[in-house]
Amino acid sequence: MLLPKFEFHEPGSIKEALELKKKWGSTARFLAGGTDLLVHLKKKIITTDHIISLQRIESLARITAHPDFVEIGACATMAAISETPVIQAKFSALKSGVDNIGTHLIRNRATLGGNVCNASPAGDSLPALLIYKALVLLESLDGKREVPIEEFFKGPGKTDMKADEILTGFRLPNPPVHSGAHYIQLGKRKSSEINVVNVASFLEFDPKTKKIIDARIALGSVAATPIRSLKAEALLKGKIAEETSFYEAGEKARFEDCKPIDDFRGSAAYRRAMVGVLTKRTLTTAFKLAGR
């Protein structure tokens, strides 16, 4: 397959990249890992006259642990995120998400910023970003902007990012003590597949009373964007952290919080049923991890 002709730009700084984007507007696209963009260009799903590669901007690939939060640069690869100790120690559901993207060959190139800008309802890294309350960091020549991740997705392939902006990274607050999180993706095979349903859950509880202080559940592949399961979350707060509560939350998520469709990967009814199962399972594991 031939790639269409385009001009290639390789800025060394965010400012330079933004100036190029301002100059070429909607005729230009940012290139991060390229594992989606180049496929879409080859298949003629999109066209572009200018490619602005972000690969030489070192700050965009950085992952930095701060006392209260971690910042992940938009161009950090899935492989790099997976191998970072602070991600393994504090954000295991995100590690699990990025480990499930494509194949290891893809993960050596694909970036977290790319997965988010691609905004697939089935994106593997997205439910974890939702439950960890990630802030999306955006920058334009006019200044910086932060958007909570749940407000960032606007539809399949659509985000809140403006034409003159760059997504520079993500800020994830450290999870509190006595909390845990877990991610499960259901697909047809282990490697290189697109999810039928994917769910991430976060749970914080009081070890004295065993009551749930906070819960967040994110559902993938069952709506136009990855979504929070708000009714199931509300149901959990104040309840005792135990199997029956997790089951009830799964039922709530299944019947009231998702809008799945039928397609060749699975029926809406099957997806709905799996939302119930995976919500319960992720909560159960999140609770186990929280108790450690």
Binding site: F8, E10, L31, G34, T35, L38, V39, I51, S53, Q55, A79, H104, L105, I106, N108, R109
Partner: peptide
Amino acid sequence: TVIMNGDPVNSCLVLAVQ
């Protein structure tokens, strides 16, 4: 598959200029 800077990658998804 080729190895680029120590990591295996799909060379069909890397631009030569990169």
